[in-house]
Write a protein that binds this DNA or RNA. Structure first.
Lengths: 242, 242
DNA sequence: CCCTCAAAACTGGTACCGCAGTTTTACGTT
DNA sequence: AACGTAAAACTGCGGTACCAGTTTTGAGGG
């Protein structure tokens, strides 16, 4: 689809969003309207519009007359977002178990198998950002396949939004998160396809919480390291900047 | 709160949002940047910024160079939003039952009693928009009290947002919705306070679904009436088919 | 060498203006 | 009166300029 140039603000929005989600603009990265405008070949106005939108979505934060930047979340916010995900995805799983057609159930099993294969490859090879991003897209697609099968588009977008935030915020951790148990998604898919709604929801709850615990540990570790670096950097350094 | 005049765009945002939520700008109402700018005593720029934000939140829709208006949702969107509410509030209830302190549990029971008293008054008196709005605020406060007790602010804002949309969209129906069973919220509160997490979640599910069914019926009725009116108005019209 | 503080270099916020679409109006034809 | 159509009115979009803050810089005093 080369169809989409609705307007400049929309282009800027998409560009910035993609850049943030791909980690090219990590949390804390400065977002100067004028600089971005020059880079995109437009005036600062549509860039500002895009930033307003991204701010409403929680990806960007702006301090009046002191600059915008990619939002840096507190660890508690990440935990809260996992809580949100648990609420949304368990409900999604419940609806899936209640209403999904046989064809969709088949597709879910197939997608789970592919996804698990991808994760196992990820496990055996050294870290590669490109490959990692590709698998992560598969992962998102897997969960959205469940959500879409419920026929409730509001649920889909809510899950997507919550995932977007988590993925962006966890980009820094993604390289060092441990692998998943073999057959992790296949097991989930089986519960969704063949189980009762209650069982499907509980399987999804377990699924979401597994990663959550791991992420929480990593975040604590990261906070410790950051504190230590802060202490060390107090002494000698002067920031010369880009 | 007369405290927060951060900037003009923020003022415009608050003004418009309040006007929409109070029904002064009903779904479909035109929102001209220039007209609103004059009304607010500012230039069209901050108004546009406010509209961008409201659009991101789903309250406003904009057709390029053809005007913005308060968003008119399809019935399916309202149904989808109830699905979202079910996901969020059942989880909220579950967390409440797991973690709420005794003091908060007491407060919830008290709030439920007050709320039920309010609804019973609403039932016995003729419709009054002001009184109705006051009770509705109490209702929102009751549900947010549950959410806040979970300690997860992300859950609170998600519920708030979902409620905002529903309340706005259902404003047209609110006058003619039937009353609730006596002790409706007290019963829910009891389940949350004394029940197991599973029971709390199920009680909330029943609670959300009850109103949902009623609203769905009203919406079907409304759609029938709208279709009839449309047929009658078809005569002198032409089809340009954008 | 470190600290102080004012000036310079940036920042987002807003006004004003013109552009290119869309919608409404109004007029001329049948 | 009913239709088609052209013009007028109005719309959101975007560019440029300016303002009032914030942050960074850099020179001078200790």
């Amino acid at each position: 689809m080369t169809v989409s140039p609705q307007n400049l603000a929309h282009d800027a929005y998409r560009n910035l969003r993609d850049a943030i989600l791909e980690g090219r603009l990590p949390p804390g990265a400065p977002l100067s309207r004028r600089r971005l405008a020059e880079q995109f070949g437009m005036s600062p106005v549509p860039v500002g519009d895009a930033l307003t939108r991204l701010e409403a979505e929680g990806l960007v934060e702006t301090r009046a007359r002191a600059g915008s930047r990619v939002r840096i979340p507190a660890p508690s916010e990440i935990a809260g977002n996992y809580e949100l995900r648990e609420a949304l995805e368990t409900h999604s799983a419940r609806l899936f178990a209640e209403t999904a057609s046989p064809a969709v159930r088949e597709r879910l099993l197939a997608a789970a198998a592919r996804l698990d294969a991808g994760f196992s490859i990820l496990d055996r090879c050294p870290y590669d950002a490109r490959r990692h991003a590709r698998i992560e897209r598969m992962h998102v697609a897997f969960h959205l396949l469940i959500a879409r099968a419920t026929g409730c588009s509001e649920l889909v977008t809510a899950i997507e939004r919550s995932r977007v935030l988590l993925f962006n915020w966890l980009f820094m951790l993604s390289a060092e998160l441990a692998g998943l148990p073999p057959g992790w998604h296949t097991e989930l898919a089986k519960a969704l396809v063949s189980g009762k709604p209650e069982e499907a929801a509980e399987a999804m709850r377990t699924h979401v919480r597994y990663r959550r615990r791991e992420v929480a540990e990593k975040l604590r570790e990261l906070a410790r390291r950051a504190a230590k670096q802060e202490r060390m950097a107090r002494g000698p350094q002067r920031r010369t900047g880009k």
